[in-house]
């Protein structure tokens, strides 16, 4: 793509296009190819300093019977975008755990296309987002199931937490299914911190920011339990929450 995208492009509809101009054209996508029968994983922490613009594209091919697990924290920069284009072959598996945090005037987004190209592949996407200040967090995720991809098992779980009135969370799971024997689950919720829980924590002595951080860490914590990079993720989340609260 050589011309700048517009809001009319589905994959860019929530983006900070003004910020994007500053780094356009974006770098070519990283290529990940998982050979048949192999299992691989990738951890990514996007915690660029304030004001920066970061666009990371990945094209990922998961071979026959192979599996790929990706875990990421997307929290840095004025505009931080991570886009994944995943193709799954026969019996392949793809797992994604993603935490996104936006505060100030940040725009943080995750755009995924998961192509179930052949039969019996599974994909699971779990996304937890937090937006405060005037920040925007967005998830645009498409699951595309080809005609031959029978027994596809795909799920998208997207939950977002809004901390302030000016904050925005977008969640747009999308399905495009051409096979007839598939299971595609998706759920999206947007909520705010439980006032009762906050008061309970405060009544035991926790100052507001600390009480909020505790609840927000709990909101995203399940994602990285037992991950080899758990500490790195936790540290990135704590740092982002500290700026936010």
């Amino acid at each position: 793509m050589s011309t700048l995208p517009t809001k009319r492009d589905e994959a860019w509809r929530y983006s900070d296009l003004k910020a994007l101009e500053r780094i356009w054209p974006v770098p070519v996508p990283d290529k990940v190819i998982v050979p048949a029968g192999k299992a691989e994983r990738l951890s990514l922490v996007q915690d660029a300093p304030t004001g920066q613009v970061v666009v990371r594209d990945f094209t990922i091919e998961v071979g026959v019977g192979a599996s790929f697990a990706m875990q990421l924290v997307n929290a840095g920069g004025q505009f931080g975008r991570i886009a994944l284009d995943v193709t799954l072959y026969e019996g392949a598996s793809f797992e994604l755990d993603a935490a996104m945090i936006a505060g100030g005037e940040q725009t943080i987004e995750l755009v995924t296309i998961v192509r179930h190209f052949e039969a019996n592949a599974t994909s699971r996407q779990t996304v937890r987002s937090i937006a405060g200040g005037k920040g925007t967090v967005s998830y645009v995720g498409k699951v595309a199931v080809s005609r031959d991809a029978q027994k596809t098992d795909a799920s998208q779980s997207v939950k977002a937490m809004l901390l302030d009135r000016g904050a925005t969370a977008n969640a747009k799971p999308e399905l495009e299914i051409f096979a007839d024997d598939v299971k595609c689950a998706h759920g999206a919720t947007v909520g705010e911190l439980d006032a009762q829980a906050l008061f309970y924590l405060a009544s035991r002595g926790l100052p507001q920011a600390q009480a909020k951080a505790l609840l927000l860490r709990a909101f995203v914590s399940g994602l990285f339990d037992g991950s080899p990079d758990e500490e790195r993720f936790t540290a990135a989340i704590d740092a982002a929450l500290e700026t936010l609260l």
Binding site: Q196, F199, Y200, G205, L206, P207, L214, L215, F219, S221
Partner: peptide, 18 residues
């Protein structure tokens, strides 16, 4: 109040030390 994802020990230690 029930607080999923936060253990009693973690909560009480943070609260007491705060």
């Amino acid at each position: 109040v029930e607080i999923p994802g936060v253990s009693n020990l973690q909560f009480l230690r943070e609260a007491l030390n705060a």
